[in-house]
Design a protein around this nucleic acid. Structure first.
Length: 56
DNA sequence: GTAATTCT
DNA sequence: AGAATTAC
């Protein structure tokens, strides 16, 4: 099956609503200097727009 | 600016 | 090619 990444609560910047979405992809965004953060790629169910947000 | 990633 | 994402 294709259940891999858990759903995360993110603020959808296109609607301003907090929604629980399963990320399309998650990766670590980190410079050589520092720890960095996890970023997820999402698609808004309301607008169909893609957006990226931090994944904790 | 830097890091990776992917959509536009 | 340029945008966006977080936080240092």
């Amino acid at each position: 099956m294709s259940s891999k990444l858990p759903p995360v609560k993110v603020k959808d910047p296109t609607t301003g609503k907090e929604v629980t979405l399963t990320p399309i992809k998650v990766w670590t965004l980190a410079p050589k200097k520092g720890k960095g953060v996890k970023i997820g790629l999402f698609k808004s169910p309301e607008t169909g727009k893609y957006f990226r947000a931090k994944v904790e």
